[in-house]
Write a protein that binds this DNA or RNA. Sequence first.
DNA 1: TTGATTTAAATTGTATACATCAAGTATATT
DNA 2: AATATACTTGATGTATACAATTTAAATCAA
Lengths: 241, 241
Amino acid sequence: MSTAKLSKLNKKQPVNAYEVIRRRIVSLEYAPGISLDEKSLVDELGLSRTPVREALIRLAGEGLIELEKNKGAKVSELNLQTLQTIFEAGDLIERAYTRLACLRRTDDDLASINEARLEFERDLNNQDVAAMVHSNTEFHLRIAAASGNKYFLESYRRILADHERIAQIWYSDIFRSDDRSANQKICRQHDELYQAIEQGDTDRAEAISIAHAHACKEGIRSSLSSGESLIADLNVQTEEY
Amino acid sequence: MSTAKLSKLNKKQPVNAYEVIRRRIVSLEYAPGISLDEKSLVDELGLSRTPVREALIRLAGEGLIELEKNKGAKVSELNLQTLQTIFEAGDLIERAYTRLACLRRTDDDLASINEARLEFERDLNNQDVAAMVHSNTEFHLRIAAASGNKYFLESYRRILADHERIAQIWYSDIFRSDDRSANQKICRQHDELYQAIEQGDTDRAEAISIAHAHACKEGIRSSLSSGESLIADLNVQTEEY
DNA sequence: TTGATTTAAATTGTATACATCAAGTATATT
DNA sequence: AATATACTTGATGTATACAATTTAAATCAA
């Protein structure tokens, strides 16, 4: 290995405690329910307790971890009830901001949405699950942002935070079972949704949004009921869903 | 003054930076838009920077302040667009969790809701605006909690955080103009809403919820258009609303 | 005077030391 | 042996010292 390469690798780029911990939670590297003690995180990240603590407080604000006074942090649970409530609230809020986005989106909004849509397609072709989770989130968040209502945006961001952990499982299973139709369906719906918003067709956008959520729900359901899935991560009984 | 009393007063009770700063923002003591530098807060609260910084991070998570890297914190703005988006998102989410609360509320939920309802009546009789703001928030949050959907709960908590600052103005104006009918209306709607939830009457609960939100909207509108109001705090033009 | 550049002050970000709290272990007493 | 108390240990909460960044002030040149 050349020294140049080495120095580049050794060059300590600023580690963002929040980003790193968040990614590990979303990617299920930190399983739901496990406790996160500051010392371990400090040792792993090579930072002091201050930025780690501040990251934990931010993450608690997002609902990804739970803090208990004098008792540290634990990764938020993810169970079947979580799934049901995600879809219950998600369906409603998604429809609301999607309709508003049709009415209020600017050209910049459209460009931003389309950028995320294309990024998702690239990530899917690269079979990069973590990147897909992120770009899918971005795609939907940018539509929510185009609604012009920050409360819908933030509400949906909260929902997507938990949804990301589920999507991680689902996408993994899609590639594991090599389900090309599932991939195509997601991309097609993203494309149709983008076009409907571009054309300001509120009813069509809402209908696509509902269909997209439904497909997502079905995909996750089959993913959970397939024996090969990472269902253990959810520590749930699929029968109840 | 007896020494016993003095020692009691002097006994430094633990100051919670988060609670104190939040209260000051909600009560508009810290006006929307002003910058909050750590040093001032540390001097005022008599705490070190650590708990103050952690409080600011929490408050930023709630949307009450905005943090910019290396540039400190400022209290979130509150303008007419905020008002419109609050009601836009609030109407929808309120109706959703109210219906769910009718279907899912436990006896404990009912007791909890009623407790907050009575607390609000007491605070109103005491003409304690800050306490009213708090107990009104509690009343609605406990209904949201009874929905059994944490995303609706947290979404509405976010909306109420900003709503509290507006309610502060509105309630103040109610007492300033000595509008007894407005007070009675709020309490009556709270009572009717509670009863509808108790009886599991989803349609009626939703209808009352809509009427309550409408009355709230109208009250704030008249409060803003009255010259005596604390409208300056909102730095807005009422004509646009 | 105006403008840009440098320098100094103030503010925020990070690291670490100290204080407090919780839980587990050991010892003593019944 | 069982329970209770005290102690030890580990972790979290707070305070403070140090580093890096931003803002302003001051100096100099045009």
